[in-house]
Amino acid sequence: MKKILLVDDEEGIQMLYREELEDEGYEVISAYTGEEGIQKFKEESPDLVILDIQMPGMNGIETLRQMKMENPKLPVILSSAYNEYKQDLGAWASDEYVVKSSNINDLKEAVRKHLS
């Protein structure tokens, strides 16, 4: 079973993404901050990371940098409510950029693409 690390500070997003991704057959590990995400990334060795950008403490761009320095081949999907972060050079290190929505078909498609 493929393992996904979900790093997002919003409880509702965590619940929605977890339910949908577990229904797709993935194991989902949750973290609510960038710092916690880095810790779980090191402990769990996920196959893919879904990462929010705006979080308290370490933001998603800095979390992405640290993860990619340790494992450059790890697929990371940035998921943000804000489309303007696509222009941030730091976001370019991600493998996908998905705008948050209650319809998560784009996210599920991106996950399938990187884990198949």
Rank of each mutant, 00 (worst) to 15 (best):
I104Q: 04
R65C: 11
V76F: 07
V98H: 07
M67E: 01
P72D: 00
L74F: 08
Q66Y: 15
Q87A: 10
V99C: 11
R65L: 11
R112K: 15
A110D: 08
V76A: 01
I77N: 01
K108E: 11
V76N: 02
S79H: 12
A91C: 12
D106R: 15
E96Y: 15
Q66P: 06
Q66A: 06
V111F: 14
N103L: 09
V99K: 05
N83T: 03
D95C: 05
G90I: 00
Y97P: 06
Y85C: 00
G90A: 02
S102K: 14
M69E: 15
K73T: 11
P75S: 00
M69T: 09
Q66L: 14
E109G: 15
R65I: 07
M67G: 07
M69K: 15
A91R: 03
S94D: 04
W92N: 08
K108R: 15
N83F: 11
L89Y: 13
V76Y: 04
M69N: 14
Y97E: 03
E96V: 06
A110Q: 02
L107W: 10
S101Q: 10
G90Q: 00
I77K: 01
N71A: 10
R65P: 07
K100Q: 09
L74R: 07
S80H: 05
N71M: 07
I77D: 00
Q87G: 03
A110N: 04
K73C: 05
S101E: 11
K113M: 10
K86T: 05
S79W: 02
Y97I: 04
M67I: 11
R112I: 06
L89D: 11
Q66T: 08
Y85D: 01
G90W: 02
K108I: 10
R65S: 14
K68H: 08
A93S: 12
Y82K: 05
S102E: 12
M67W: 09
L78M: 08
D106Q: 14
N71W: 10
A91Q: 02
L89G: 10
P75R: 00
G90E: 01
E70W: 08
K68A: 04
A110T: 03
A93Y: 14
Y85P: 01
E70N: 11
A81H: 08
L74I: 10
K113P: 08
D95S: 09
Q66H: 15
S79T: 04
D95P: 12
S94M: 04
L89I: 08
Y97M: 02
S80W: 02
A110V: 05
I77M: 02
R65D: 14
S80E: 01
S79C: 13
K86E: 10
A91N: 04
M69H: 13
V99H: 08
K108S: 06
E70D: 13
N83R: 09
A81I: 07
R65Q: 15
V76I: 13
K113C: 09
Q66N: 13
K113D: 10
S80Q: 03
S101V: 05
S101Y: 11
A93G: 12
I77C: 01
L78C: 03
E96P: 10
R65V: 06
Y82D: 08
S79M: 07
R112T: 09
Q66F: 13
